[in-house]
Design a protein around this nucleic acid. Sequence first.
RNA 1: UCCUCCAUAGCUCAAUGGUAGAGCGACCGGCUGUUAACCGGUAGGUUCUAGGUUCGAGUCCUAGUGGGGGAGCCA
Length: 616
Amino acid sequence: MHARGQHVGLGAHLAVHGDDLPLGERGPEHVLVHHAHAVGRDVHDRGHRDADEHEQRRHAAQRRLERRAEPWPETRAHQHDGDDDAQDKHGEPHESLLRWRGAWPPPTLSSFGGRDRKLHQPPPTMPPRRRFRMAWLQVRDALRAPVGTEVTVKGWVRTRRDSKAEGGLSFINVHDGTCFDAVQVVATGALPNYASEVAKLTTHCAVECDGVVVETPKGGREIKASAVRVVGWVDDPDHYPIQPKPHSFEYLREQMHLRVRTNTFGAVARVRHTLSMAMHRFFDERGFFYVHTPIITASDCEGAGQMFRVSTLDWVARLSEPGRGGPTPGSEGRAAHFEQDFFGKEAHLTVSGQLNVETYCMALSRVYTFGPTFRAENSNTARHLAEFWMIEPEIAFADLKADAALAEDFIKYLIQTVLRERPDDMKFFDERIEKGLLTRLGEVVDKPFRHLPYTEAVKVLEGAIAKGQKFEYPVKWGTDLQSEHERYLTEQHFKQPVVLMNYPKQIKAFYMRENDPGTDGAPGPTVAAMDVLVPSVGEIIGGSQREERLDRLDTRIDEMGLPKKEYWWYRDLRRYGTTPHAGFGLGFERAMMFITGMQNVRDVIPFPRTPGQAEF
RNA sequence: UCCUCCAUAGCUCAAUGGUAGAGCGACCGGCUGUUAACCGGUAGGUUCUAGGUUCGAGUCCUAGUGGGGGAGCCA
């Protein structure tokens, strides 16, 4: 069941702090590097020393990288299990993954080191702070700090609840976005600004709280405040758009600049970050190089849909010239017109980095690109954006099978990583956005994807029709499968991700490698294309083995009536040391939807661009 | 682009063509180591915009704007 229409707001899920967060130990790794250095210098002669120092610097750099990627000892421990993390493969991994094995983090990790001092200085109107300065901890660290630790937390108020007991008592939930939960700060009437300020705090006031970590009567963790400084008030709390109550996603889209302050969009933002990092790590660990392909493309040959024009010409002035409707496509003035433009030819925003990344693949072997992609199509659905992010790996000396295997490993790696590193947010998605999400993702990780030739898929669908399954559109070999067909395969027939391979040639792009006749017993010519389809989201990956044979590629370009001249550099790749190669494109936002259970693509990207919407 | 549904208080929604309502939120008070708190009270409205029908329009009609869902295209 999905949660369309379910309202998730600030008040929904607060203060599950502290329970069952045993403290871990700080690892000794940070001392090893220096020790190794010292030994190297003393023992070896100069010639060896250079080589050794080089080696040790390399190790040190490697360690630094590892530390940076994995700040917490407990996550590092998991990391060593890598892909074949036994815990993820055998029975009930999720409960254990969800438990926070808290570690006591070094305070510098969360306090920005030296800048701490500046940020701590109170505004002139406030009384000067006495005694000593407490460690500024992020909320996620404060929630795991040992009882008795003196801390400062800085963040925003989620809710405030008051009690008259003990001469005035306020419970302030403070969050700073570093984890799902807020920390509960307890302020008493003894604070000098209790009545004047603390008791008037409303949702999303910015505060700095000093205090000591204590155990609650119920065994949780909270901060007993010794000072609460209000940094920023909320004007007119009655009209503050994000109230501590459920809000619809539709409403929050109209408050795009504020919606990240809610539980749901905070969780989405953190998971999105974690997925980005996981993606880079996945490729880096496998020897891929990250290639920045261009955003602006002047080749008029992308052919993957409507494109956005990039121009420095004054189109508005031209369009308003009397007697002219501006430049019209195909008119004679057109070519002359673009010669005067910035790039000397017609330019657009990219619709795919694939053709560019292929050039790097033919020298670096394994590459990927990750960046924004633009489609000017007037599609208005829960799965389409005009600006979205796409990951496109390309591997040399590889066929379609290797491509599909890479895609499967990739998706599973992303899921495992996010379950391990964001258990709090994933638990929230499981409880409030899509019931059973964790079970579903666990099954995706555990089971091999179902591989199926397109030709077989058509037979499955025809079989289903014979058994009475109704489709709006007919199923016929040689036509693209409709949404309803894909949904039937992933949601009803196989109930898992499905990799469809070897599509009819006539419905696929020119660069896809033509298969030998009769592959899979297909009645017509096919190409080595594959789509990864997943339940509810649909197509999440589209990829193919590329046509590396120049003569075949030329034939395809001619058949499709494409301007061969424009492809001169792409064709060069086939003339000079061509190899079999393959790649795919994964829509990052669709992966987000699949992994979080969010139902609308506009809710998994910070500032969605859709037809008629670029307000924020 | 096509089909379809919707637009009323800060939010979510009621109101048969006949006096504009509730819950939540905000504010005030009561109670309480509270935690989607609870109890009582107060304030809060150009019913999306522009026309039209009618004695009378939140309600019916026309057009526009904005939004949701589905389809196509795709990732």
